[in-house]
């Protein structure tokens, strides 16, 4: 299992990266940590003719913390965010979710934005981005745009990224006062992709968001009002709405059960940890 041949451009700044991506068009791909892309290359599920390495562009390695949002550059590794001293305080959902992302050996190389770009429906980081209502900043030669997470993820491993375009950063809304955050996951082994993963946010006014990954072709969010008398019915409807399918990891019925039970447990945890 070796990658098909490709040219490798190691960009020193943004203009070099964007020029190489423009020239490469649909045949060019960005590589940063490579923890999702290199397996695809090794198995020849992806055969780009140009790879553009963006890890040496200084501005992409920044974590920028503002009062309302945390912006994470495209070359920031998962382990770097995991060790960011303000993580538990500013991004409690990611603090809970990151230990579930693959294994430490992969988080040492893999990037936050790379996982978002790969858009695996079972991946934890796209789920967190959907749950929190984050955004993705995309750039090509003459255009920069910011896309909401719910519009960015279009299907299984399919996103709004255009040819010649790259993710420069993702932004997560920062922790708000008196709001609870929780993350839970069921996988065959810790570190595997999730069979079902749940992220919940409980607000001071009693409203809540439950987002679920691993079932539909993208992570999906359910908005809940403060009146939770019909919660079981809402969760049941949501579980069916996700159109789970049987695969070799789990049956559709098991996934629906997980949405109902793990979803409820995650919501309850988020509601109880509002401070």
């Amino acid at each position: 299992m070796k990658p098909a041949p490709f040219d490798l451009v190691t960009a020193n700044d943004m203009s070099e990266a964007l020029e190489a991506l423009h020239q490469g068009g649909t045949e060019a791909r960005v590589i940063a940590g490579g923890q999702s892309l290199v397996p695809m290359l090794n198995m020849r599920l992806a055969r780009p003719t140009t790879l553009v390495d963006i890890t040496r562009i200084p501005e992409l390695s920044r974590i920028e913390a503002k009062s309302d949002r945390i912006t994470i550059g495209a070359a920031v590794r998962q382990s770097t965010l995991e060790r960011w001293p303000d993580l538990a305080d500013r991004l409690p959902l990611l603090h809970a979710a990151l230990p579930w992302v693959a294994h430490t050996q992969l988080r040492n190389r893999g990037t936050i934005c790379g996982s978002v770009a790969h858009a695996d429906p079972s991946a934890e980081l796209p789920l967190c981005l959907i749950a929190l209502g984050g955004t993705v900043t995309l750039r090509r030669r003459r255009k920069t745009r910011e896309v909401a997470a719910r519009d960015f993820f279009q299907g299984m491993m399919s996103t709004d990224l255009a040819p010649g375009e790259m993710i420069v950063s993702v932004s997560f809304p920062a922790r708000k006062p008196s709001t609870g955050y929780a993350f839970r996951e069921v996988a065959r082994r810790h570190g595997d992709f999730a069979i079902v993963a749940c992220a919940a946010i409980a607000r001071p006014d009693g409203t809540a968001t439950l987002a679920v990954g691993g079932v539909a072709d993208t992570p999906r969010a359910l908005e809940l009002s403060a009146d939770r008398t019909d919660l079981d019915d809402r969760l049941n409807e949501f579980a069916w709405h996700l159109q789970a399918r049987d695969d070799l990891h789990a049956t559709a019925r098991y996934r629906r059960d997980l949405v109902r039970h793990l979803g409820l447990a995650t919501l309850e945890e988020a509601l109880s940890c509002r401070d």
Binding site: M1, L8, G34, Q35, V38, A102, Q105, L106
Partner: peptide, 26 residues
Amino acid sequence: EHGVCGACTVQVDGEPARACLMLAQQ
């Protein structure tokens, strides 16, 4: 050769990483 088994783990700048998921040029 796709990052699952861990046999190829080496240290890159002191941190463990999969050598099969890294281009030599990187």
